[in-house]
Nucleic acid binder design. Structure first.
Lengths: 147, 147
DNA sequence: TGCTCTTCTGCAAACGTTTGCGGCTGCTTA
DNA sequence: TAAGCAGCCGCAAACGTTTGCAGAAGAGCA
């Protein structure tokens, strides 16, 4: 999603566009991959040193509710990335090395369907993360780090 | 798993059986379903008021590593239940009402197999929780509570 | 039983995250 | 452009959870 579209979308929902919010949006956007909260905070602080960590959390949660960013739990810390409506995806997170890999949504279609039909349970699979052990860590035994 | 078997299993692994640990094991065991940490703490305190919350956390994590209890995230709080090796299961947690439902393991067999074959990724599906909206909350619109 | 070693415990401080509060500011209307 | 209001921000305190430390206590052996 282009920056401009995001801003229009937010404005349309009555969300105020403060300097802090723009800073945080840029930080997540420029970061590229999955950004830790502290990394977002650090980047935003470079432009505006008075920004508070509480504002970062509040803003990231706001953006998540608005669908602008997606939350990914890596280890037990929260990470965020810009939501890409063109290419929605889930995440596989490697417990030993902390790596995060994208997973196409169709791998979960059948699972979603089963839960819906059999239990009338509507899973939150828009933002789904499965932890495990990746190929590399399996090969080189980095699992020793795991919990 | 019978209490006696659990204790023997722990002893066999060189884990010390202190009064605090027995208290915590009983608390989780007697609680029935998925127990919140604060509930475990409250129960243990009834028998031994000097017990510390840090001991409860440390012990529950020890038990989890030993496979004695299973961790279930409900909302963003940790809950624990005695692991039943006779009837392993996953969990569906309803976001609006916080209800936790058991899910038989075979619903995930295919998913596990796909990740393993296609990505050489070994998912942690021993302790798997999917959040969503349960049948009741869908019907009565309790979703208004959700995040 | 008593000694020794290892591990566990309670305490307190720290972590990452959330929340209440009072002052400030972006947005709307005129 | 100026005024008013809704809602945002920084601050500080609180939350649930984790960690470092020094003393206490379980387990094995004499």
């Amino acid at each position: 999603m282009a920056q401009r579209d995001i801003l229009n979308q937010l404005r349309g929902k009555g969300v105020r566009l403060t300097p802090q919010r723009l800073l945080i949006l840029n930080a997540v956007s420029d970061g590229g991959g999955h950004m830790g909260v502290d990394e977002v905070f650090r980047r935003a602080k470079e432009s505006y040193p008075y920004i508070d960590i509480a504002t970062v959390y509040r803003t990231l949660h706001l953006f998540r509710r608005m669908g602008v960013v997606t939350e990914v739990a890596i280890g037990d810390r929260l990470h965020f990335e810009i939501t890409d409506p063109e290419a929605p995806h889930h995440h596989m997170v490697c417990r030993p090395c902390g790596g995060a890999y994208d997973l196409a949504p169709d791998y979960l279609d059948e699972f979603r369907n089963t839960l819906s039909v059999e239990f009338d349970f509507e899973p939150d699979l828009d933002n789904f993360t499965v932890t495990g052990v990746c190929s590399n860590c399996k090969k080189y035994g980095a699992d020793a780090l795991g919990a």
